[in-house]
């Protein structure tokens, strides 16, 4: 019975660890605390550009493609065509500056390390130990 419970606990632990598909991350030198899902959604929809304590954020995007689309779908439940139409309205109506598009996952990691104001997202297995995890998705 004890062994079963242990196994069950282990199974739950590993499954929650495995279940995070994407993580929102910042560099080790940043002072961001954990992000709520709601705040993360507002940031990545360009509705606000600061965290709850007024810390301004520079968003980083992955290059266009399936990973980026998947991240936005997990966070906002919006499909790629909706997200792109939404962001083009935000940018061309002068409401928000577009996120900066990194050239690759490695480039995004490097920029996070260099800029303490930057926040980006990565597939869970691409996050390295020197990054701080602010939110796990889903």
């Amino acid at each position: 019975m004890r062994r079963f419970l242990l196994l069950l606990a282990f199974g739950l632990l590993t499954s929650t660890a495995v279940r995070a598909e994407f993580v929102i991350v910042a560099g080790a030198a940043s002072s961001f605390g954990e992000l709520s899902r709601d705040l993360a959604e507002q940031l990545f929809l360009g509705r606000r550009s600061t965290t709850a304590d007024g810390h301004s954020v520079q968003l980083l995007d992955l290059p266009r493609g399936a990973e980026r689309d998947r991240f936005y779908f997990l966070l906002t439940a919006k499909k790629p065509a909706q997200i792109r139409a939404w962001w083009s309205r935000q940018v061309f109506s002068g409401r928000a500056l577009p996120p900066f598009e990194a050239a690759s996952i490695a480039d995004l990691r490097r920029r996070l390390g260099d800029n303490p104001d930057a926040i980006g997202y990565l597939p869970d297995d691409a996050a390295t130990a020197e990054l701080r995890i602010l939110l796990r998705l889903p």
Binding site: R48, T50, G54, R84, A85, S88, R89, F92, S93, G94
Partner: peptide
């Protein structure tokens, strides 16, 4: 302040729902 921005200069006039992105046809 957080959540407030002031813009001055030349702006698209936001009279109707899509006025400020009227020519950004991709967004519609």
């Amino acid at each position: 302040a957080d959540g407030i921005s002031i813009r001055a200069g030349r702006l698209r006039v936001p009279f109707f729902m899509f006025s400020d992105t009227l020519r950004v046809n991709y967004a519609h």
